[in-house]
Design a protein around this nucleic acid. Sequence first.
DNA 1: GTTATTAATGCAAACGTTTGTATATTTGTT
DNA 2: AACAAATATACAAACGTTTGCATTAATAAC
Lengths: 330, 330
Amino acid sequence: MVTITDIAKALGVTPSTVSRALSGSPRVKEETRRTVEETARSMGYERNVMASNLRRGRSSIVGIIVPRIYREFFSNVIGGAESILNEAGYNVLICQTHERREAELQALHTLRKNQVACVLMSHAIETEDPAPIAEALGDIPLVQFDRVFRSLPGAKVVNDNYESAYAATRHLIANGYRRVGTLAGHLCCEAFSDRLRGYRKALEDSGLAYDESLVFQDCILRETGWDAALQAAEAGCDALYSAGDFSALGAMEALRWKGLSLPRDFGIVGTADETFASLMSPSLSSLGQHAFEMGRVAAKAFLFRSQATTVISMELHIRESSNRNSICQK
Amino acid sequence: MVTITDIAKALGVTPSTVSRALSGSPRVKEETRRTVEETARSMGYERNVMASNLRRGRSSIVGIIVPRIYREFFSNVIGGAESILNEAGYNVLICQTHERREAELQALHTLRKNQVACVLMSHAIETEDPAPIAEALGDIPLVQFDRVFRSLPGAKVVNDNYESAYAATRHLIANGYRRVGTLAGHLCCEAFSDRLRGYRKALEDSGLAYDESLVFQDCILRETGWDAALQAAEAGCDALYSAGDFSALGAMEALRWKGLSLPRDFGIVGTADETFASLMSPSLSSLGQHAFEMGRVAAKAFLFRSQATTVISMELHIRESSNRNSICQK
DNA sequence: GTTATTAATGCAAACGTTTGTATATTTGTT
DNA sequence: AACAAATATACAAACGTTTGCATTAATAAC
């Protein structure tokens, strides 16, 4: 392995000069820099990141913490962040929490130990108190995305959950559904509580009553979606806005099992636009997130040391599960 | 930050003793070790991985290279590997190649620079020549999974592609399909060529002719699946074994568009058992891979310095798209 | 021509750990 | 009691980079 000392010897200068030349310090002559760079290239030099990190007390790794990498949304966010960060010379260390608080703290700890340059994170559902996160991070910058804690400092990238849930609910109402319920997520999580607020506002703006018994909390899994849908149907519901696609899927299965037909008897709109949404039959209407873009924005927030909150719009994909108007036209 | 020197001073010993005590060297007295460990804990000591890595010339990071993290198969392999590696004190650095050779070499380079302890890898489809991989790795151990090059040294973990494709094809034949084609992958990739061999053997064992015109190469995408299915149907095919689920999906859509009914007029079995396979209507029969287990096995192969090749069985999930027998019984 | 100013490089001390070799201590053997 | 063997710890040199401070060389100011 060739080191800066080797280069220095070859050129009759000191390692400091080589180091400065290679890291673009303005303290070396332009000509020297060129010579050094050339020699480095010809000798096949590669900077030893370990040594560099040790000395600088900070690595060129960015940590990303997500609940689960196999959720399409998160893997796409990761992909987006990676595309920006790799470009900028950073590597990405990915940790999964599986929605568990303990695993989340463990991950933060791991990243701290690796002295990552920054942490991009979407917190676990279990997490209610953000204070330990701040503590575990120390002075490492934090960029939150999707699921964010307002009270933590640093940049944030979120979806327009309120507006999109509003739009999705209005869409159901516009299709003639009159008793619209919702499969809500965990309300301690702002992304989910915002969706609930948007849903509620849509009902109110349409002159429909907001009925607490049609709000199913902590309902984002296929199983809980199934149960909630049956209860909802029992309660006279004829449509559901779901804060997730998996619970929407469970709901559709339950309703079909009950003999109801979508979108004729019942309308559903999900959130996340998982691949299966468009492949099911009937296909599931869903709010698509610009996950890749969200990752890019989060990564840039770190690179530019932004502290801003960016809002990214979701996109309503209207499909068979809610589109009664076009079915009628057929 | 508290260092081993701090601990040493507090105890009146030298850093070397502390280092040895903490890393479990047999060269310190049992009593000393206990005292050191206790003091370390009480002082809140954490080993500086940068310094450790620099000195040892090797990091406690394992690199994983996959074509795409959002493929469920790969994200589950990653999850499995992570579960073992984290336990053993390693962290995981994930790189995507997007099936591109250049990105693959770049990733290897990155990992080499980070002096990873090992690389777990499933190569890109574009890659035909494994030599540059070996070169880029230097003396870093390699564990290949799913898509492997026999000629490279090191452990390998693969599916029983030959046997499973054989079983899937036999299943189609047992359901009365008589002209079975296949959507094959890139045959330079052993995983795919093995599936083709299994398919062929099944035909031969069943007394059916192997017809090259029913073999569609490089066909693993939704779009190519669509085209191939139409050609296949034109050629008198009544069933397809597909080496991927996305091409199987495209094929199903094309056939339905053509007015054919599954499984009545046409049978399909895919490979990978993506989530959508069970959710579609008709649901798609598919060969499920034990992805999580594959990740665990690959990680263990590294930890135990194994050089062996492990074969993991796939599982045939029989669903509506191929199950004509049970439909008839209805 | 002397002095102040700037520019370019050199010097040397870190960063925190690991490890080969040396030293001191204990134990065992005769 | 003397010596060998073992055990336990200390010493010191790395690992390759970065960076504050010192030094030298070049330019500008008077």
